[in-house]
Design a protein around this nucleic acid. Structure first.
Lengths: 265, 265
DNA sequence: GAGTGGTCTAGACCACTGA
DNA sequence: CAGTGGTCTAGACCACTCA
């Protein structure tokens, strides 16, 4: 099949930056400049083919780039829509201050109020579960031991931004009925644990950033391989016991993390 | 042009998972399983075309996926090589313990020793610089004010993993000649600052993950849009003054962060 | 059912690498 | 120079969305 480069510009020719990158940049610029506003539809691929006078595959690659910028969300039979600019949320280590719990605010809602965004929590599952290996190790129990799992999905302005799974040893939770409820009451589950004599000394958070898997991307409505933050938090009591492990996965573009590290020994 | 689906499996047909994803997964599995070891070349694209009996474009897309996994590095006229598995480095907030500084170890080398990897630091620039806006704000000086900048590039096993830029107000550094040296001596620059009466109360770290820009990707030898961690650290003294801001950019696949958060108020 | 994105093919031409 | 990855085309067929 004799094609393409008989007419027009040379294919991979003396051009430094590929055509599809140029096109992607132009589209991204239009969004940043406000020519395309949040909620607007990006022109359809066939329309872009016409406008730029290139083949469909080229537009296709350009749109992959545009999606990678995170400014756009594409849905199959519909098209691409310019996303609301994610007003990032500060996730401060201060959210674990004991006074917040005594003040009756759960960490999540306490923060959302500050930034003035609509927050929603959807409970996916609360109940017994066999502890996965990594969680079991952190809780100091054997793999497969029954623990209480609390899986939630957090929304912000209607879009899912975070999945969180808490795991607690059964002997810790069995006498605390609130921990089996969707809403554990003022101050959240940490406040309930404190009510029952579990005094915390520290929380240990471990984070890692990596590209989202396909499954994670669809759950958080991200473009595949957009960065996500995987965070594991151990809640440690005075006895040195880990009474909760919280495993959360976040859309990286939605969060900024802040930690205050005491300089004294 | 009548094509493809006259023979073999249907194109986008009743198949749930696209062929290129299947192929990508197979290749990734081979790497994870050790069939392809670190340093091995992945078969060339034309070889894969033959082996899987698909068109070049399909293999091409599969390889994009494989690259996104971060297990492979592709170079133009050469091919794709299986990367050394990044032995991730734990970046613990404990590295700022005062006892480490008094013990004479700089934070970076103190940690590298633990994990037994070859570390190298390359100094890119040490000298005066006009403070960029965000840095100036954190230091509490006007934008454009002269500050001391210390730009370094950190290597691990020969590959660059982190760029770090420290900024210090000029009045703080002008009497501390060690801060102008490539090697500021035992305990690093924080130890020198303490020697000169700057007692630290805390360090505040702010992190965000995002895809690397093209420029950052090339500086850190990453595939473009691989995730990076952008970390800003303020060093706060007893007087409440920020005497250093450290701006670092890290290849996300090389680091795990750990923070201990005191539960008491 | 018209329109949109998603997958795939077959083939051309280019740029880079290394013997 | 031969071999490899990178860009591009033109066109087919599919699945999803929505009126």
């Amino acid at each position: 099949m004799r094609v393409g480069r008989t007419v027009g510009t040379p294919a991979g020719a003396g051009r430094a930056v590929p055509r599809y990158v140029q096109i992607a940049d132009e589209i991204v610029q239009q969004i940043r400049a406000g020519v395309l506003k949040a909620g607007d539809m990006v022109p359809s691929e066939s329309e872009l083919v016409e406008r730029y006078g290139v083949a469909g595959g080229t537009i296709r690659k350009a749109m992959v780039e545009v999606r990678a910028s995170g400014l756009v969300e594409t849905r199959h039979g519909k098209g691409s829509i310019v996303k609301d600019r994610p007003p990032v949320r500060l996730r401060s280590s201060d959210r674990f201050r004991a006074s917040h719990r005594r003040g009756g605010k759960a960490a999540y809602l306490a923060e959302s109020e500050q930034s003035g965004a609509t927050a929603k929590v959807s409970v996916l599952y609360i109940g017994p579960m066999e502890a996965p290996a990594d969680i079991a190790e952190r809780l100091g129990v054997d793999e497969g031991t029954q623990v209480l799992a609390r899986r939630r999905l957090y929304f912000r302005n209607g879009t899912p931004v975070e999945t969180a799974s808490s795991y607690l040893p059964w002997d810790v939770v069995k006498d605390i009925p609130e921990l089996f409820a969707e809403n554990p009451g003022p101050g959240g589950i940490y406040a309930r644990l404190e009510d029952h004599g579990h005094a915390f000394t520290e929380f240990v958070e471990t984070l890692q950033a990596r590209p989202a898997s396909k499954a994670e991307a669809s759950e958080l409505a991200l473009s595949p391989s957009a960065p996500v933050i995987h965070l594991l938090r151990d809640a440690v009591t005075e006895e040195g016991r880990v009474v909760e492990v919280c495993d959360t996965l976040m859309a990286a573009d939605q969060f900024v993390f802040q930690y205050r590290i005491p300089a004294t020994d």
